[in-house]
Design a protein around this nucleic acid. Sequence first.
DNA 1: TGCCAGGCCGGGT
DNA 2: ACCCGGCATGGC
Length: 212
Amino acid sequence: MNKKLDDIFRRMFAAFGPQHWWPGESPFEVMVGAVLTQNTNWGNVERAIGRLKQEGILSPQAIYEIPLSLLSSYIQSAGYYNIKAGRLKNLISFFVEEYEADTEKMFAEDTEALRQKLLVIKGIGPETADSILLYAGHKPTFVVDAYTQRVISRHLLIAEDADYEEIRALFMDRLPCDAALFNEFHALFVKLGKTYCKKKTPLCQDCPLNGL
DNA sequence: TGCCAGGCCGGGT
DNA sequence: ACCCGGCATGGC
């Protein structure tokens, strides 16, 4: 394990403890949440998921069959609801048609092969695909998000203009390939980012990573 | 009150 | 191959 990354992980873990991600009750719920949370506050997503439950349609078959306009009205609180309704449909259609809505079957596939298939789906980009693989499938892939990017560029670990795959490779090349580690690491980046590394505060005062 | 949140796509250069 | 506008709600 790379020393600098090890230090970062230890400091974040010491500061915040285990994050218990993903906050969802089933692999399927994680898949839905992964789409709904695109560029969106998690609180708004929870409300949308609650609504889907309340309407009794938080299941692959129900989402597969429901009219697009009705789906978008239920997920309104998550924002971008017209776009996201379509993206959800795309993902769930793939899930139903290719794997009979069976997560066991889907995640039995080779991780890298499945990742490439997810990336073909319209509305599923690298972060959403990796979130599904890691948090729904417990597959060892590193999730990179805006917080991860901001934190590591502020702490001078990588060029500011590094792209997604570059940053993902940085972690995957230097860490043991362990889904539980990747899970906690990413969740801690989000926690740290929310607490100390916001956009508006260029100086991360009291950030546990200061002085590394 | 504006700015921001656990992105991604499509069209233009 | 990049760059940018669009998509939208709710909390602080």
